[in-house]
Every structure is written in structure tokens, then in C-alpha cells.
Computed example of a mutant assay.
Amino acid sequence: MLVKQLLSMKESSGKPGIAAATIVTIKPDATMADAARLLSEQRIGAVVVSSDGKTPVGILSERDIVRQLAKSGAEMLSTKIADVMTTEVQTCTTGEDALAILERMTEGRFRHLPVVNAEGHMLGVVSIGDAVSGRLKELSAEKEALTGMIMGS
């Protein structure tokens, strides 16, 4: 299964309260309080940081917020996202294998991956949950095909 198929599955299923094709972004000069509010409102685990809404310059997850809270206390709410975000953003393209990106996310211990085109503009975001779901669908189809061959249908 390819990443473009994962994006298609997201579009067909949708997420309550957010259109599947929407890429939630926040500007680097926003505060951690802004980010926490956005994550809560959108019911998502990470937000892509982008100055123009097209090109990722960072990513901020719930874990980043919790770590900063433990380190600095409530005053961290006024901290700029640019000071906390992960700046080495891993990305993928629509033509990559979903299993390969699942392995990359597992090894890198991150859960969200912006999907970009050749110009580096975002086309969507896939989560580790999307990749696992895609893999389970793939395995189910393989099981059905093998069962069909064994049963002679």
C-alpha cells in the first residue's frame, strides 16, 4: 500500500469535526497556549508548524507540550512554538510504501508525518494510526485471497 492510498482512506473515512483533507497548521510565533488550544479543539495529537500553511518548518506534539510543562511549569504557556518544536521534520511522498513509513515512524519514535510533493508543499498528514490501519486492511485482503485459494473459490 502506498501513502497516497492512506490519504485516500482518510478522505473517505473523515474524522469527526475535521475534514480529512484539512492540514492543521500553526505559525512558529504562536504560543504554546495557542497550540494546546488548537490540539484540543481539533482533537489531534500533533500540529504542523508552518509560516505559509504549505511548507512544514516544524512539528509540535502533545508530548512536546507535556515535556515543556514539566520543565518550566505553567509559564511555558507563553513560550513561542519556535522555541520548542521539532525542527528536523521528517516527511514522505505519496509514492512511498506505507509499511516503510510505519517502520520509520516506529524507529524514530514519532507519530505524525507530513506528506509533501516535489516542491515540498504539504498534501496531507499521515499518523502512525493511519499506517497501522492501512497495514491491517492489506493483511486482511491477503488473508481473504489466501483463504479463497485454499477453499478453491
Rank of each mutant, 00 (worst) to 15 (best):
residue 6 L to W: 02
residue 11 E to Y: 13
residue 12 S to M: 10
residue 12 S to L: 08
residue 12 S to C: 00
residue 12 S to Y: 07
residue 13 S to A: 09
residue 15 K to W: 07
residue 16 P to M: 00
residue 17 G to T: 05
residue 17 G to S: 04
residue 19 A to L: 14
residue 19 A to M: 06
residue 21 A to D: 11
residue 21 A to H: 13
residue 21 A to T: 11
residue 21 A to L: 01
residue 23 I to Q: 01
residue 23 I to Y: 04
residue 25 T to E: 01
residue 28 P to C: 01
residue 28 P to G: 11
residue 29 D to T: 04
residue 30 A to L: 01
residue 31 T to M: 00
residue 31 T to V: 02
residue 31 T to I: 00
residue 33 A to E: 12
residue 34 D to H: 08
residue 34 D to E: 06
residue 35 A to N: 06
residue 35 A to R: 01
residue 36 A to T: 12
residue 37 R to L: 03
residue 37 R to M: 09
residue 38 L to M: 10
residue 40 S to Q: 09
residue 41 E to M: 13
residue 41 E to N: 12
residue 41 E to I: 15
residue 42 Q to S: 08
residue 42 Q to K: 15
residue 45 G to A: 05
residue 48 V to Q: 06
residue 49 V to N: 02
residue 50 S to I: 05
residue 51 S to H: 09
residue 53 G to P: 09
residue 58 G to S: 10
residue 58 G to R: 02
residue 60 L to K: 04
residue 60 L to G: 05
residue 63 R to L: 04
residue 64 D to N: 14
residue 66 V to I: 15
residue 66 V to G: 01
residue 67 R to P: 00
residue 68 Q to I: 06
residue 70 A to I: 12
residue 71 K to L: 14
residue 72 S to Q: 10
residue 72 S to H: 08
residue 73 G to Q: 04
residue 74 A to L: 06
residue 74 A to H: 12
residue 74 A to Y: 02
residue 77 L to T: 02
residue 77 L to S: 03
residue 77 L to Y: 05
residue 78 S to F: 09
residue 78 S to C: 00
residue 79 T to Y: 06
residue 80 K to F: 09
residue 81 I to R: 02
residue 82 A to D: 13
residue 82 A to T: 10
residue 83 D to M: 07
residue 83 D to K: 11
residue 85 M to D: 07
residue 87 T to C: 03
residue 92 C to L: 08
residue 92 C to N: 05
residue 97 D to N: 15
residue 97 D to Y: 03
residue 100 A to D: 10
residue 103 E to K: 08
residue 103 E to G: 05
residue 104 R to Q: 14
residue 105 M to C: 15
residue 106 T to C: 01
residue 109 R to P: 05
residue 111 R to T: 12
residue 112 H to A: 05
residue 112 H to Y: 11
residue 113 L to D: 03
residue 114 P to V: 02
residue 116 V to F: 03
residue 117 N to P: 14
residue 123 L to F: 04
residue 123 L to H: 03
residue 123 L to D: 03
residue 126 V to Q: 09
residue 126 V to K: 02
residue 129 G to F: 08
residue 129 G to R: 15
residue 130 D to H: 07
residue 131 A to P: 02
residue 132 V to E: 03
residue 133 S to R: 13
residue 135 R to E: 12
residue 135 R to F: 14
residue 140 S to A: 10
residue 140 S to N: 14
residue 141 A to C: 00
residue 142 E to A: 09
residue 143 K to Y: 13
residue 145 A to K: 01
residue 152 G to P: 08
residue 152 G to K: 09
residue 153 S to A: 07
